[in-house]
Amino acid sequence: MNKIPILYLNSILIASIQTELTDEEVLSFQSELLTKNNNLLTKGVIIDVSTLDVIDSYMAKVLSDLTTMVKLQGSAFLLCGVKPAVSSTLVDMGMMLTKIDTFQSLEKAFNFLTSNDRKYQ
């Protein structure tokens, strides 16, 4: 059962991960996100992790896989709000996550997807 609200706004799906999730919860979130994305034909998906203190290799792999999955569905995948300590921890561990498009804030990610001169998809 997924416990993270997935919101739909201006053809964009937005989810903010605010509590630490178990592996099963992460997978049910992933599954619900992909189903919703398929049903709603979105421009993109934005995941906000600005209140997440720990992204371990498992969570990083899920985020990386989600990028590929959402892009395969024809939508953009944007991550925003990675904390400084989390970013340095990920790099030191060896999780580079260079495939993921990241933004500093939800607002910037949202503006990027909704702006008309966007040369991206």
Binding site: D53, V54, S57, P84, A85, V86, T89, D92, M93
Partner: peptide, 14 residues
């Protein structure tokens, strides 16, 4: 520090 807390927590998680 916050950075060390995060590293330690992540290592425990792994």
């Amino acid at each position: 520090s916050v950075s060390e807390q995060t590293r330690f927590a992540t290592a425990i998680s792994e």
